[in-house]
Each structure stands twice: as C-alpha cells, then as structure tokens.
Amino acid sequence: MITLKNLSFSYRKNKKSDKIFDGLNLNFEKGLNVILGPNGAGKSTLLKSIFGLLNYHGNILYGHESITSMNTEEKTKLMSYLPQMDVDLSTLTVLEMVILGRLPELGHRIADEDLDIVMDTLEALNISDLATRSFSELSGGQKKLVFIAQTLVRKPKVILLDEPINSLDLQKQLELCQLLQKIVDRQKVDIIVVLHDINLASRYAGHIVVMDEKGSLYNKGKPKEVITPLMLKEVYGVIANVTYDEKDIPVVSPICSVREF
C-alpha cells in the first residue's frame, strides 16, 4: 500500500545526531494499520512526512506511484490527514463544518449526494443529533468526532489519523475503532492511525508497526506477532503480562516499569 524507502528527517538541518528517522524502510499493508511506540519515537512526524508536510529525504510510494513527486492537489485527493488539534473558535454548525470536508467535490450548490454522505457519517459516529449545534459549544471529545467526520467524508483512498481517540470516553473510543474497521471493509479505504492504547491496537488493527525511541522500526506484523512481553520491555520499558482472550487477541496487563525509583 504505502512504502517508505530510505526515509530520513531531522527538524534541525545538518544534525545527524538529531535525526528522527535515518534510512527508514517500511511497508504498510492494506487495511487498518496502527503505529505504536513510546513518546518521541517519531510517530506523528511519520504521518506528517507521508502527507508531505515535511521536507524529508528518501521516497514514499503509494503502490508504484511516488507520493514524494505528487503536488499538493494530488496528495489531498489521495489522502486525508487528521493531526492532533484543538480548535475552539468557529461560528459554523457541525453540519457546516463536516460539509467543508467535501469542499473539493462541492459545486455552486450542495448536492443531495454530499448531504447524504455527511449525514451518513454523522450517524455512523453517533453524533447526528449535533448537526445543528454550533461547533464552539461542543465538548473537546465531540469536537474531535466532528473533525474525524470531516476527514471521512472526503472519501480518500488513504486516511492518516494521529491519536484520534484522545479526549474520547471509552464508549466513543470503541465505536470509533469499530467504525474504522467498517470503513476498511466496506469502502476499501486504507488507514494508518497512531494510537497509544496497546489493547485497542491489538483488538482492532489488522497490522501493527512498532517504532522504538530512536525512530527505528522495531517490529511489524499481526497483533499476536508483535504484542509480546519482550517488545513491551524493550520498547516501552514495562514489565507486563500478555494473555489471550476468547478470540485469541492479545491483552496487555502492565505490572511495573523496568526503572527502579
């Protein structure tokens, strides 16, 4: 699906020791990909690089097409990207905010098809009752869901999401992950999402990529292949038990940090 070839990036030019990535080679699979890793592993930087927001060295491909060589319009048609963000000020309603996600397809008038796509997405996220509410009146979690809806209605081939479950309660976290699975299955859209919750990643990801604190690839594969006590110790510095539920999904139970205080 998306392939990184010899990717290198540093926020400070000519500082090899400060590189977030250095010659990173990585292939994301079709379906729902989750990126895991500790703080500072470069997970958000990786998504920004894929979307073309950073001047990296190397090449990023979608199939056999070079994303690196695409212009901005071509990238935005191929991908939607939702960064970590908090926007509090807006005079628009929720419906108007989400309709803006259809902007590239909108004509002089909003077509019934556009409205249907928007309302279907709001209903899938269980926030259709907020459609006429002012965006500025919403809670932080509700605003996050509106931004996610705005991303989904663009109907891209690839969706990049940076910690989308932050600010959401447990029910909304589960519903969002279930929705991402449905989008992959029904709309044949590929998704790359950064998560911190390892158990959610284990339950919903088709493919997991683990980055270590140096921005290097530690491991990738199916959840059962990747989520192990050794990985948790070496990558996260945590002693933990890994058991398996009735569906053979790994369940992580942290015990303690490897550091002594």
Rank of each mutant, 00 (worst) to 15 (best):
Q187P: 00
K182R: 13
Q171G: 06
P223F: 08
Q187I: 00
D169P: 01
Q173G: 05
G237Y: 09
T243H: 06
Y244K: 11
Y204V: 07
K247Q: 12
L180Y: 01
Y244P: 03
C177W: 01
I239C: 08
V210M: 11
I191C: 10
I227R: 08
V189E: 07
L217T: 03
K188T: 08
K172W: 07
G206K: 12
A240T: 11
L170P: 00
L179F: 12
I227C: 10
D169F: 00
A205T: 06
Y218A: 12
I183W: 01
V242T: 07
E213G: 01
K247C: 09
V242A: 10
Y218W: 10
K214S: 12
K182Q: 13
M231C: 10
I183R: 02
K222W: 02
Q173K: 14
Q181P: 00
L217H: 04
D245V: 11
A240K: 15
G221I: 08
I191E: 05
K222L: 15
D197N: 14
E234T: 11
L174H: 08
K172L: 03
E175V: 01
Y244V: 10
L170I: 05
L176D: 03
L230K: 14
I227A: 11
N199L: 09
S216N: 14
V184D: 02
T243N: 14
H207M: 03
D245T: 13
D197I: 04
M211N: 02
Y204L: 09
D169E: 05
S216K: 13
D197K: 13
V194Q: 02
L180F: 06
E225S: 14
D197L: 04
R186G: 06
K224M: 06
M211C: 02
A201R: 02
G215R: 05
Q187N: 12
E213H: 11
P229C: 05
L179N: 01
K233P: 01
I239N: 13
P223I: 10
N219S: 15
G206S: 10
I227F: 03
L230R: 08
A201S: 11
C177T: 02
N241Y: 11
D169A: 11
Y236V: 08
D190C: 13
V193R: 02
S202A: 15
K172N: 15
V189I: 15
Y204S: 03
